[in-house]
Every structure is written in structure tokens, then in C-alpha cells.
Computed example of a mutant assay.
Amino acid sequence: MATLDPVDAGDHVCWLVGPGDDFTATARAFAADGALFGDKVLLIGAPETRWSLDGASREVVVDPVAERADGAAWNATALLDLVRQEAEAATRQGFRALRVLARMDRVWPRGASPQEIARHELELDALVLARGAVVVCAYHGADFRPGLLEQAIGVHPHQLGTQAEVPGFRMYSAGTDCWSVSGVVDSDSADTFRTALDELAARSATVRLLCEDLELVDAAGMRALVDVACKAPGRRIVIEKADETFRHCWSLLGYDVPQIPVELAP
């Protein structure tokens, strides 16, 4: 994705903001597109007047840092609650959708762990799909170390901006307890993949992974699947639409046994 112009209802975008990016101009254009399409706009970050659309009633601006200074328990959970609340309000008020731009350095002013990022973004992705919202999560590279940026990219279906090292896979919501996995899961991205799976397995008794767009899973990726499934008692991972290469390698590695709660669906 080269710009935010094509984003639409149901899109969840990870924007890697580089040192040469004009964040304010892009944010204003994104908000203006919301007015053009009849969206309610929610801006989460520093309340710069340059974001404003002349005080239009369709726009809500929230600064997490200021909220915390006033004693509010503002964190990633509060962001999810706010997006859910405003998406419901937008529907009642007759807007086409809720359009959100969030500065994640304001949500996590001291950074975040890979687990926090995976948990938050996967939950937000499911919310975006269910509510038909448009959400852009802006990660400023200067405020997040590369490993965290890789985690953030891996759990967004879309990306704006460039980064030298990005995970080879994408994992995003395809329905209730169902997640699409695409790209490549190898030794370079297995840890990021494992973190995302851990968060899904902690939330659901059965996690379905749609793998029709998955190009490759090497031994490290398959080991991550096994480890996550086996360490979560009572949990099950169902692999759907895996190709013959995946099935053959899974069997060769000895994982196709009842003791491992990973099911390869027909």
C-alpha cells in the first residue's frame, strides 16, 4: 500500500511512520476523506489543531497521554473499548463507518512487549472486521524497536511504509475464532508467529487457521504450532486448506499423532 487513499471499511492498516513522513498532513488527509465518504472520524494521539476539520461534529480527538495525566486508566484496552463504543455510536448516528487513526506511541508511551502488541492488534483486527470500521495504527519507527515493528506488521492485513526487516507472514481475522495466515513462516519469523498464536490460543478453545494463501511453513514454523498447541491444555488448533507439501512435511516430522492437538482438516 503506497498511500492511505484506498483504505475502506473493514481495513486494518499498520503505518510505519518514517523520519521523512509528514504525519500531520497524512492524518489530515485521512480525516478529510472520512468527511468525504460520510464516516465518523476518531483520532487518537496528540490533539494538534492541524488535525481538526473545523470542529466538525463527525470528529472525535482523544489524547491518551493527557487522559492518563488526569488519572484515567488509559491503555490499549481503553483504545479497544473506545473504538467499539464509537463504532456503535457511528452506526446509530447514521455514518457509513468509523474511521480511526491511532498514534501507537501515545497509546504505549514507554513501548510495549511483542505479546501486548499481538494481543491488542489481533483483538482490534477482529473488531474492525465485525464493525466494518477503518483503522490505521501508526507506529513511529523512532519509538519502537525493530522486533516490535515486525510483530505489529505481522498481525495487520495491510501495511503502509517501508521497513528493512518485516515478517514474511500475515495473520488477520477471517471470522469468529478464525484467522487467515498468508506468506512464509520460517526460522526468521517463527518467533513472531509463535507470539501471535500464543495470544489466540489464550483466548479461544479452538483456533482455526485458514492457510490457502500460506506459501511455506518450515520446520521452525511447524514446531511453533506444536509448542503453542501443547502448552495450552484443552486448546486445539485446526489447520484448514493446507497444501500437500504442508501435510507431507507435517507427517514426516511425526506431528500427525493424537497427542498433538493440531488437526489438519480435509
Rank of each mutant, 00 (worst) to 15 (best):
residue 27 A to R: 04
residue 256 D to M: 07
residue 148 L to V: 06
residue 25 A to F: 04
residue 28 R to Y: 08
residue 1 M to R: 03
residue 221 G to P: 05
residue 15 W to T: 05
residue 244 E to Y: 12
residue 42 L to G: 01
residue 213 D to T: 09
residue 71 G to Y: 03
residue 20 G to D: 11
residue 27 A to C: 10
residue 88 E to A: 15
residue 60 V to T: 14
residue 3 T to G: 10
residue 109 P to L: 01
residue 161 G to K: 06
residue 32 A to D: 14
residue 256 D to E: 12
residue 83 V to C: 15
residue 181 V to K: 02
residue 143 D to T: 02
residue 93 Q to E: 13
residue 42 L to N: 01
residue 100 V to K: 03
residue 157 P to T: 04
residue 76 A to R: 02
residue 85 Q to Y: 12
residue 183 G to F: 00
residue 200 L to N: 10
residue 2 A to K: 14
residue 66 A to L: 15
residue 242 A to I: 11
residue 190 A to Y: 02
residue 59 E to K: 01
residue 30 F to R: 03
residue 223 R to E: 13
residue 156 H to S: 04
residue 166 V to P: 00
residue 106 R to K: 11
residue 153 I to R: 00
residue 160 L to W: 08
residue 40 K to D: 11
residue 260 I to Q: 02
residue 78 A to P: 09
residue 48 E to W: 03
residue 67 E to Q: 11
residue 192 T to M: 06
residue 151 Q to A: 12
residue 114 P to C: 13
residue 48 E to S: 11
residue 189 S to K: 05
residue 220 A to N: 15
residue 173 S to H: 08
residue 266 P to E: 05
residue 50 R to V: 10
residue 133 A to E: 03
residue 176 T to S: 13
residue 60 V to M: 11
residue 263 E to V: 14
residue 111 G to C: 06
residue 77 T to H: 14
residue 126 A to R: 00
residue 83 V to T: 11
residue 190 A to M: 02
residue 142 A to I: 02
residue 248 H to W: 09
residue 95 F to V: 04
residue 89 A to Q: 06
residue 175 G to K: 07
residue 37 F to C: 05
residue 92 R to G: 00
residue 259 Q to K: 12
residue 97 A to G: 04
residue 117 I to N: 01
residue 16 L to D: 00
residue 158 H to N: 08
residue 74 W to G: 00
residue 4 L to H: 13
residue 102 A to G: 03
residue 257 V to D: 06
residue 161 G to N: 13
residue 45 G to D: 02
residue 106 R to H: 14
residue 174 A to E: 10
residue 172 Y to H: 15
residue 31 A to L: 15
residue 264 L to V: 15
